[in-house]
Amino acid sequence: MAGGIPSRLQASAPGRIAAREPGWVRWSLIIVSLGFLGLFLVVPLAAVFTEALRRGVGAYLASFTDSAALSAIRLTLIAAGISVPVNVVFGLAAAWAIAKFDFAGKNVLITLIDLPFAVSPVISGLIFVLLFGLHGWFGGWLIEHDIRIIFAVPGIVLATVFVTFPFVARELIPLMQEQGTEEEQAALVLGAGGWQTFWRVTLPNVKWALLYGVILCNARAMGEFGAVSVVSGHIRGRTNTMPLHVEILYNEYNFVAAFAVASLLAILALVTLAAKSGVEWAARRASEIQVEQDDDLTPTAAKEGA
């Protein structure tokens, strides 16, 4: 309730076992899932770190001091650093508009927000090439004014923003719709202005969902390959992000360096998972504490209500 995270984050009721399956069913289910998990998640993860450390820690660390690697890391951070804030603003604005107002074309907007999920990332990248590329719609104009978008940093940022823009909005829309507008109206009647209402009422009510969206958005922004690959041009030291850099190194048979950079992305993924669980835990705890105290209160509630 108060934590304000969509239902999928809510605690399942503990100890509610509807029916007990026979032992062999339970064990085979567990073995199948663990086997699957091991084969597709744990083994590859282990492989990444083993390969990265094959020639020892020295070679592993040396992979990062290479100027191309550093530049790839920097570019990835720039792309994520721009697309996450942009998407936070867009996500809040879109969710606010969709949840709190009625307007024509609302359903179209909701559908459009999902577009990047539906479209292949490569197509997303191509859209930008068609728009801003040499032979694209705005290509001539851009060349005249000496502005480079495709095969340059702005194109990479654009592609990343496009691919990641559903994440924040998707988290916020259902929650804000569920919360309705009454609290905002109450704030308004009490004399709060638009900004005050936003900072003091709306934002605190969605903070966990927002944080969750930011984490997912960031993970995708750093890991995006397809769309970025199309617009990047793979110019070493200039337009390579980490995932692209990994591919180049791998194609050059530089396995240790490729896996070393890949391991950074893997670590990022693990950190993301940990942060995500942390947010879920905190949100659940916030609502659980309140429910607990609510229960404590029940017997006296009627009396105190007098």
């Binding site: 304000g4 109206q185 109450a186 308004l188 009647v189 709060a192 202005g193």
Partner: peptide, 20 residues
């Protein structure tokens, strides 16, 4: 504007600020 009318409004479902 609603905020300038100096009215006190009590909502049916109270609309208390849940995080405060």
């Amino acid at each position: 504007h609603a905020g300038q009318r100096q009215v006190g409004f009590v909502f049916q479902h109270y609309a208390l600020f849940r995080h405060m």
